[in-house]
Simulated scan of single mutants.
Amino acid sequence: MPQTHIVTAFDQELDRLTSSIGAMGDFAGAQVTDAVRALLHGDTALARRVVDQDRQLDALRRDLSASAALVIAKRQPLAGDLDEVLADFKIVEDLERIGDLAKNIAKRAIAISGMTFPDVLVTSLDELSNLAVDQLRRALATFVARDAAEAMVVRQQDEATDAMHTAIFRDLVSRMGADPSQIIGFVHLLFCELRKRAR
């Protein structure tokens, strides 16, 4: 549980940062969901919207990084308080990276628009996307609530995401050999998979 400071304004600044990071995370998660939907269903209009909206995430990253830097400059936090603000910096950078990955997926959706994929593969990729976005939202919720116990639960559940990713990766590779006519589309999906797993 976060400590209360003598200077109330400091607590308010930290709370605003945390709340804004939560909102940025919701936006990043929505970007991923939309990008995957555009990819799997050939929705180029939605894909272009994801690409365009990436600028908003970039702006949020700049604003939040500046706010965190201002807190350090004004309050000169020590120990745990400094760790918290530095963690804010890292989370903001990670959220922007998630937005970049969503933009990459959306660009691939535009590149392969018109291609269709087997229903079972579409379902698997949709499930993987939903699992990853849900994990992001739950992780951010634990950050906002400062719930360390729940954070460990969310972290342990990453194994399920890893297992599903591995299964889909193998399925894509096997399909590339079995159906050469769809190799280009499968390669794009494979690169989305690889990029999404970047940490």
Rank of each mutant, 00 (worst) to 15 (best):
Thr142Ala: 07
Leu17Asn: 10
Glu93Val: 12
Arg108His: 13
Leu40Ile: 05
Ala35Met: 10
Asp43Ser: 06
Gly22Thr: 05
Arg175Asn: 06
Ser67Tyr: 01
Val187Lys: 00
Phe169Glu: 06
Val144Tyr: 03
Leu40Glu: 10
Ala102Phe: 07
Ala139Asp: 00
Val32Cys: 05
Glu150Lys: 11
Ala160Cys: 00
Gly29Glu: 06
Ala35Ile: 08
Ala79Arg: 09
Gln182Thr: 12
Lys103Glu: 15
His165Arg: 08
Asp126Thr: 15
Thr8Cys: 00
Lys107Asp: 07
Gln53Met: 12
Phe89Ile: 14
Phe89Met: 13
Asp15Cys: 02
Asp15Ala: 14
Val133Ala: 05
Leu46Lys: 03
Gly80Cys: 05
Gln12Glu: 15
Gln157His: 11
Arg199His: 10
Pro180Gln: 03
Pro180Asn: 03
Ala38Cys: 03
Gln53Asp: 15
Asn130Pro: 00
Gln182Arg: 11
Lys90Met: 10
Lys107Ser: 11
Ala106Asp: 02
Ala132Gln: 05
Val153Lys: 12
Lys90Tyr: 03
Asp83Met: 14
Gln53Lys: 09
Lys196Cys: 09
Asp126Gly: 13
Ala167Val: 06
Leu64Val: 05
Ile6Tyr: 10
Arg197Met: 13
Gln3Asp: 06
Met176Gln: 05
Gln53Leu: 10
Gly114Ala: 12
Ile168Tyr: 05
Leu82Asn: 04
Leu39Asp: 09
Phe27Cys: 00
Ala111Trp: 06
Val36Ser: 01
Val85Ile: 12
Thr33Asp: 12
Gln135Ala: 12
Ala47Trp: 04
Asp63Val: 04
Ser129Trp: 02
Arg61Met: 11
Arg97Met: 07
Phe117Thr: 03
Val71Ala: 13
Ala73Lys: 01
Asp11Pro: 06
Arg197Tyr: 07
Gln135Pro: 00
Ala59Tyr: 04
Asp100His: 09
Arg170Met: 06
Val187Arg: 01
Lys74Phe: 00
Leu190Trp: 08
Ala111Arg: 14
Thr116Val: 08
Arg170Trp: 01
Lys196Val: 03
Thr166Glu: 13
Ala145Gly: 01
Ala87Gly: 07
Asp88Glu: 01
Val122Ala: 14
Met164Trp: 02
Lys196Glu: 04
His5Cys: 02
Arg146Tyr: 07
Arg55Phe: 01
Thr142Val: 09
Asp11Thr: 07
His5Asp: 01
Ser20Met: 06
Leu189Cys: 11
Leu140Cys: 04
Glu96His: 12
Pro118Thr: 09
Val120Phe: 04
Met115Pro: 00
Gly114Ser: 04
Ser67Asn: 09
Asp15Thr: 14
Ser113Trp: 00
Gly185Tyr: 03
Glu13Arg: 15
Arg195Trp: 04
Ala47Cys: 08
Ala163Lys: 13
Asp100Val: 10
